[in-house]
Write a protein that binds this DNA or RNA. Structure first.
Length: 196
DNA sequence: GCGACAG
DNA sequence: ATCTTGTCGC
């Protein structure tokens, strides 16, 4: 399950895209609107988006019978100055497997080679805290790191499998797109869209 | 003190 | 994240 939130003032429009690795074209979107007054503070993004995603997932779990194996969020996991990004916060709060997939890194990194799927480790205090992944050639790399109940290599491998024709993995791109149209009030109802 | 800083 | 047009490329 890929998750994203769009904010319009204190309104939070949450969207989740659910798909299987074996059949990525059979996705479904789940959307829900809620409120938050938490501010965005760099390095403390988890305290803004974490509670929103936690409430969304608890709601999802209470209504659905089949639950996702892995959650992917738009933010950092351990690739964070204190190794404690949004993906860690959410994973610990729910005791679920979460991966962080961000478009920018908070930590310095060396650029992966230009070829698609090449990657470079992000290190902090001697240890690997994530990977910069060149999801497409000639495109800025994305930042992948483990959040909870998964290791860095597995997190990287899962995201690599979710990459399609675009820079961001399909679950993230679709969730982002859905949250956007939902927030703008132009989300088309269909059998693929479920309002929670 | 000033700037930089996931979204 | 958001403010914003056309434009280049697959």
């Amino acid at each position: 399950m890929g998750l994203d939130v769009q904010y319009v003032g204190n309104d939070a429009y949450v969207a989740a895209t659910v798909l299987s690795l074996g059949a990525k074209e059979n996705y479904k979107h789940y959307v829900w609107k809620t409120q938050t007054d938490a501010p965005y503070i760099p390095q403390y993004f988890a305290f803004k988006e974490g509670p929103v995603l936690k409430a969304f997932i608890e709601r999802y779990i209470s209504q659905q019978t089949i639950l996702p194996d892995i959650f992917v969020v738009d933010g950092q996991g351990t690739a964070h100055p204190r190794k404690a990004g949004l993906a860690c916060w959410l994973g610990v709060a729910l005791q679920k497997t979460v991966i962080g997939c961000a478009k920018e890194s908070l930590l310095p990194y060396e650029s992966p080679s230009e070829e698609a799927m090449s990657y470079k480790a992000i290190r902090l205090e001697e240890s690997i805290v994530g990977y910069m992944l060149r999801s497409q050639s000639n495109t800025k790399p994305i930042c992948i790191s483990a959040g909870h109940l998964i290791n860095q290599e597995q997190a990287l491998a899962i995201i690599q499998q979710l990459i399609g024709k675009y820079r961001n993995p399909d679950v993230m791109r679709l969730a982002d797109q859905t949250a956007r149209t939902f927030a703008k009030g132009i989300l088309n109802a269909s059998e693929k869209v479920i309002f929670l």
